[in-house]
Simulated scan of single mutants.
Amino acid sequence: MEPMERTRQWAIEIYKGDAEKADLFLGRPHPMLDNRRPKDVAVDDSGAERVISLLGRAAYGGGV
């Protein structure tokens, strides 16, 4: 699976199946990604892991 698709699938899971909310998250600049959009960061494996980690922290109480 491509890095961005893997990231999107994880975002959809975090947003409890809501693809629209996941896509909104992926399309907005985020301060913890140097104000870059998650979908622009997740173009390779290391960027995808960075975004997935951010989503995990948000979902499981690590704060973002």
Rank of each mutant, 00 (worst) to 15 (best):
M1E: 12
L33M: 13
A58K: 15
K16V: 02
D45W: 11
N35E: 09
A48M: 01
D34C: 09
Y60T: 11
P38C: 14
G27T: 08
P3T: 12
E20K: 05
A42Y: 05
Y15H: 08
E20P: 00
M1L: 11
V51E: 11
E13R: 03
D44W: 02
L33E: 06
G63K: 07
V41Y: 04
G47I: 03
L55D: 00
D44N: 15
E49M: 15
G47Q: 08
P3V: 09
I14L: 00
E20G: 08
I12H: 03
D40V: 04
G17A: 02
R6T: 01
E2S: 14
R50M: 14
T7C: 01
R36S: 09
L24M: 08
Y60M: 07
V43Q: 15
L26A: 00
A59D: 07
I14Q: 09
G62H: 12
G17I: 07
A59P: 12
R57Q: 13
V51D: 10
R28W: 06
A59T: 00
V43I: 15
R50K: 15
K39R: 04
R36H: 08
D40R: 01
G62W: 15
P38D: 11
V51P: 12
E5T: 05
N35H: 14
T7G: 04
I12N: 02
S53Y: 13
M32K: 09
M4V: 13
L54I: 11
Y15D: 00
G17F: 01
R8D: 05
W10F: 12
G62L: 12
D40A: 01
Y60C: 06
Y15T: 02
L33N: 10
L33W: 06
A19D: 13
E5I: 05
D44M: 05
I14R: 04
P31G: 09
A58D: 11
R37Y: 02
G56I: 05
R37N: 08
R6Y: 08
L33Y: 03
A11E: 03
R6L: 08
S53V: 03
G56Y: 09
P31N: 04
D34N: 14
A11F: 00
Y60I: 03
D40N: 07
A11S: 02
P29W: 06
A48V: 06
D40T: 03
E20T: 07
D34T: 13
I12K: 04
V51I: 10
R36W: 09
D34I: 12
G62D: 01
K21C: 06
G61M: 00
I14H: 04
K39C: 03
G63H: 10
R28M: 15
G27H: 12
G63Y: 12
M1W: 11
Y15W: 09
G27K: 14
Y15M: 08
L24W: 00
M32C: 06
E13G: 07
G62R: 12
I14P: 01
D45N: 14
G63I: 02
W10E: 00
E49W: 06
K16E: 14
P29I: 03
A11I: 12
G17Y: 00
G61H: 13
R57A: 14
G17Q: 04
R6W: 06
Y60R: 12
A22D: 00
D34Y: 11
M4L: 15
E20Q: 06
G56T: 06
R6N: 06
M1V: 03
Q9F: 04
P3D: 10
R50D: 08
L54W: 00
S53R: 13
E5V: 11
V41S: 08
I12P: 07
R8G: 02
G17V: 02
A42E: 01
E13K: 01
R36D: 03
